[in-house]
């Protein structure tokens, strides 16, 4: 019996902490990667990045609706996955349009990063307006297809445990897609000539020019990669939870926190930071009472919820970690750009 208690406790944690944190972490990691790539190459903190996420997801939802209306679905997979490539193309094109019409001017002027950051606030406004105008400010679920891979009830019955483990298909899809995206990105950056030239440009702009690297080409590639990552992150997040422009905007802070915690400008740091933030948010706001009830003998069982912080403070956690990192190790976990 003792043994079952232990397994129950583990399953409980896996169900409520490990699986959700892994999928949220993957979504956050992708989003942070896009933020950090824009930061690394274009050298400014892009306040509009979370709204690019909204925009990309909105595009995916619209395409998914279009496909569904003409009878195309992806079977057991969500239609939005089918729509993803199209959404990426639209997002990237719009991104490039904004770059041409807005950002390139300041690049040519060699404006301070902080000016570009303020410009990105203007872009943020415009994106929010567009998204709300087209699809509205409300919560939208756009998931279809097979919902569960493992359902809690089946799991319980099969193993004869008290606790069940649920794995939603979106969670598995998230982890797999995120993994593919990250591996491709790192392959691109480390092994291809274009990727290396992007790193070179990010590292030393003047020398990159002297080596014949075309900055405009690098900028275009950067926005395209950023669009791929942010749209994918947004679609995965929306499939897993739901799509609401304001919720997406609120992801800006965890994204920034993850980028700085990991080491801003460093892609590996962005991935690590994304998972650190996600796991912290979930482990610190989970109520461990039931977990200890399984593990402890009866007279030692805790009376409270055994929760470090109320779930109301999810956002606060990313900020607290951010502050701790700023105090203890301002360069982040992986040594990032100079501060």
């Amino acid at each position: 019996m003792e043994n079952f208690e232990f397994i129950n406790a583990i399953v409980l944690l896996a169900n409520f902490v490990l699986v959700p944190a892994l999928s949220y972490g993957s979504q956050l990691a992708l989003a942070t990667l896009s933020l950090t790539i824009v930061y690394g190459v274009l050298r400014f903190s892009n306040f509009a990045q979370a709204d690019w996420m909204s925009f990309g997801t909105m595009a995916a939802i619209l395409f998914a609706w279009l496909f569904q209306s003409i009878g195309i679905t992806a079977g057991i997979f969500p239609t939005a996955l089918l729509a993803l490539p199209f959404a990426i193309i639209v997002t990237a094109l719009f991104c490039l349009l904004i770059d041409r019409s807005v950002y390139s001017f300041y690049r040519k002027q060699k404006s301070q990063p902080i000016v570009l950051m303020i410009v990105s606030v203007g872009v943020m406004f415009i994106l929010q307006a567009i998204v709300r105008f087209i699809i509205g400010p409300n919560d939208r679920k756009f998931f279809d297809g097979e919902k569960y891979i493992i359902h809690a009830l089946d799991f319980k019955n099969y193993f004869g445990l008290e606790e069940g483990l649920t794995i939603k298909s979106t969670q598995l899809i998230t982890v797999i897609v995120a993994l593919i995206a990250m591996i491709s990105l790192f392959y691109f950056l480390q092994k291809t000539k274009l990727g290396k030239s992007m790193r070179a440009y990010s590292n030393n702009e003047d020398l990159a020019l002297l080596s014949g690297i075309n900055p405009e080409k690098i900028v275009i590639v950067t926005w395209i990669i950023s669009s791929i990552l942010i749209t994918t992150a947004g679609v995965l997040y929306g499939l897993d939870k739901s799509f609401k422009p304001f919720t997406y905007f609120n992801l800006l802070l965890p994204m920034f926190a993850a980028a700085i915690v990991g080491g801003i400008g460093s892609p590996i740091g962005a991935v690590i930071g994304g998972y650190v933030i996600a796991f912290s948010e979930i482990t610190l706001t989970y109520a461990y009472k039931k977990f200890f009830v399984y593990l402890m003998p009866e007279h030692l069982e805790p009376s409270g919820l055994m929760q470090v912080l109320s779930t109301d403070y999810k956002f606060a956690i990313s900020f607290i970690i951010l502050v701790i990192v700023l105090i203890v190790r301002p360069t982040g976990i992986v040594r990032g750009k100079i501060i």
Partner: peptide, 20 residues
Amino acid sequence: ITLRLRSDYLAIATLGISEI
């Protein structure tokens, strides 16, 4: 905490504190 660091950090930290 933040004013010794690069300027963007103040922006991000203040964004965070306002959310808190």
